[in-house]
Design a protein around this nucleic acid. Sequence first.
DNA 1: CTCCACATGTAAAAGGTTACATGATTAG
DNA 2: CTAATCATGTAACCTTTTACATGTGGAG
Lengths: 202, 202
Amino acid sequence: MPALQQTNNLPATSFAVLGLLSFGPMSGYDLKQFADRSISHFYWSPAKSQIYSELRRLKQAGLVTEQHVQQQTRPDKRIYEITEEGRNQLAGWVGHSELEPAVFKSTFLLRVFLGRAAGHEALLHLLQQHLAQEEAMLAHLQEAQEECSPYSDDSLYSLLTIRAGVHITEATIKWSHEAIAAIHSLHPDSQTHTETGALDPA
Amino acid sequence: MPALQQTNNLPATSFAVLGLLSFGPMSGYDLKQFADRSISHFYWSPAKSQIYSELRRLKQAGLVTEQHVQQQTRPDKRIYEITEEGRNQLAGWVGHSELEPAVFKSTFLLRVFLGRAAGHEALLHLLQQHLAQEEAMLAHLQEAQEECSPYSDDSLYSLLTIRAGVHITEATIKWSHEAIAAIHSLHPDSQTHTETGALDPA
DNA sequence: CTCCACATGTAAAAGGTTACATGATTAG
DNA sequence: CTAATCATGTAACCTTTTACATGTGGAG
């Protein structure tokens, strides 16, 4: 007899889709919306085409079932539902797989690293832009956090991921200020480039 | 008359390679080593095969030149050198291209988000593991920082990227403690899972 | 009347990793 | 003698994005 079969060679992205389905049955279309409002901040915002192909793969692996739903007013749907086997595989992956390092790929930091090629003036401008974007991101995350707080059984895990975003974004903002100050202290002559756009300095 | 020609449709990764070449002429082999010791922490650690194909692309675009170097004791090399045009394109990309968001793809946070599927005990264990890894990362970054400090004209930009890593890693560690505490406070019965491995609790 | 939401997919291309292939020298 | 370093590349594969393709109903 084959022991607890371990068909488990699926990539993380398959588990992402499977994991979203663990919240309830959904169509590919629903899944895309849900992903964009949940895991997009720390994992990925899938292309539609990829969702549909992941669903085919999960179905073939027996981790989800497909149900055709006819509609007259709207296009027909296919509703996907996680199976018992799907829940088992998911629990194993979430709880007991190897920790793999996160992918962090910042073209912005690459540009900072190559700053010499552009000069400190251009770099300062870039940093100001970056700072503004991060501040906007922080505001956005704090809003999401308000909607979730406080820590409770229901919102615990999603709130934790939002808190991770808040911590990291705050750190990035602190770093930006430090970086701007460091460049200024080495180049006291350089412009501040604050986003004024002021027409009348009166 | 065609204004300042803008052949510039290259992906960020090409500029990463071009940027490394702005530090001096190198072979593909050298480039791989250099990348692993510089931009790997915030951008990417390239596969050899990709380096060589990027070099072909850059050469074709006229941004680098190739020089064949014969060696008797070692395999022959090809040394690549950035051109004037290459430096111009690089300066434009670093200083004046659009800021694009960083790719941040954490399977770890995905697993936290899906924590319900595995239960808080497994999650706590995962968080402890993560915390240990991040602490090791912080130590590694602080070491790199020592070798670079203090801020100076020469080391400014690379030190800035290391500092970014330090800020973000510290934030991640703080978050981990918060997350562990939050789970404990909602599940007071759960084990601490500190990495004891103790054989003799005497 | 026009745009948006609903709903699913195919095809092509790009980005990136892994495995394969080769082969000399040097350090232990 | 064995492993690591030097040195370059091809082929196959996987993941992911973008563009293409289609069509209805409701809201403004």
